[in-house]
Design a protein around this nucleic acid. Structure first.
Lengths: 229, 229
DNA sequence: GCATTAAAGTGTAATTTAAACACTAACTAA
DNA sequence: TTAGTTAGTGTTTAAATTACACTTTAATGC
């Protein structure tokens, strides 16, 4: 089976920069390539866009196929299309970035055959193609976005403590945050619901759990509310 | 001549949302289609990406071919790839937006045959394909970007008055701005050089001309400076 | 030439927001 | 019972933002 066109058509792929948050630091999901080119190198999960699916659908499908991850926050990032970025043929890659509640998913749900692993963003291996560039852009975007949209919650489990949330911001922004000012601000947005639940079996005072109130967020967003931290 | 691939490849185009600033309001450059589909409809300038050119190069080439515009500020916006957005075949469009110094260019420099025209963004005609959606995204991006990066200058001639600059911000943001506060802030960035030149033949006190100091901007940007207005 | 019109130019006070900062509470483990 | 660890909590100061009104300068119309 083959496909013929009057004009040359590039191939179009989607690639996904998937962020997860471990207790300590921000991590990135990579897969190890088992074919040439760049066989053996780590790379972003991704693949060709099928004729009947949207770009976002393609990204979600590839993530399920290659990593088993599903139901995650996903957003288009940027499109990389330099001639020569793939040695085989002209490939336009519509890059996406995704945030996943690492604690919820049993890591590596469906990684048949392919090697999948989380790497701390500070210690990434050498990547295939121009994927290092893509990761750089994604990190920059994540840092910028976390300041004016409450997307950080996508990295945490449903219930979380304010301490966990603060560590998230510190990991993403790569700078320390004042505890009292942080709590003031984050509670001031009224996007968090305090639960009647506390940590158990911790070797210190138990923290209260909170939950992100997505409904309220949607409401406030409609009214043009500003969530800048 | 034809091109054959083992897998189906979509066509890839670039489309450009070109903004210009007339005395009064923000305008958008459109071309009238002279072929089906959407023959006769107004549309964004754009076209197919050639095998050996980057996406940005493609956008610049199409702009020159279709509108004669050159040397303008150009940035990638978003990639639109819904199946069915073009009735002929699957087309992925990497949309860009551009800012042009309308006053400098003699409008319509090289519009051979095709009809090209500027429309106030508030009074756009019905557009071809999903171009209305693209314009919407571009406007949103422009509004957001103008607040934290000095890109507004790309819409003005080399020399401009603070009044012109203020009217630009008001046109883009679609809201009035306090004159004194605006001047305080914009001069506070130290990105403007006051010239020893004043308006001539105006029926009111002549305003001083200023120039955007791009070199200083690059310097400050490197040092992580913040240009938020 | 004088009054009218139109935009340029200029500073201060009030309010809001951001930043800095240190102790007590609660729980476990040794 | 003590040491270690994180949770939780307000106030003061500095900085940024907002609101606001009159004088200056030039051309135009009478």
């Amino acid at each position: 089976m083959s496909y013929t066109y009057k004009h040359p058509h590039p191939a179009v792929t989607v690639d996904c920069v998937v962020f997860g948050l471990d207790e300590a630091d921000l991590k990135l999901l990579l897969i190890q390539r088992d074919v040439e080119p760049f066989k053996g190198r780590w790379a972003l999960p991704g693949g060709f866009v099928q004729p009947e699916e949207s770009l976002e659908q393609a990204a979600r499908r590839e993530l399920i196929e290659e990593t088993g991850l599903t139901r995650l926050y996903l957003e288009q990032l940027y499109t990389f299309g330099e001639p020569g970025r793939d040695p085989r043929e002209r490939v336009i890659s519509v890059a996406h970035y995704a945030l996943v509640k690492l604690a919820d998913h049993n890591l590596r749900a469906a990684s048949d055959a392919v090697d999948v692993a989380w790497f701390p963003v500070a210690e990434l291996p050498k990547l295939a193609f121009d994927h290092e560039k893509i990761v750089e852009v994604a990190l920059k975007r994540l840092k910028a976005k976390v300041r004016y949209e409450p997307i950080g919650f996508e990295l945490l489990p449903e219930k979380f403590t304010l301490g966990e949330l603060q560590r998230l911001y510190e990991a993403v922004l790569e700078q320390p945050v004042d505890k009292r000012n942080f709590r003031k601000k984050i509670l001031g947005t009224e996007l968090l619901d305090a639960l009647d639940e506390y940590q158990q079996d911790v070797a210190h005072r138990a923290a209260q759990y909170y939950r992100f109130n997505r409904a309220r967020y949607e409401q406030l967003k409609k009214r043009g509310f500003n969530f800048e931290l």
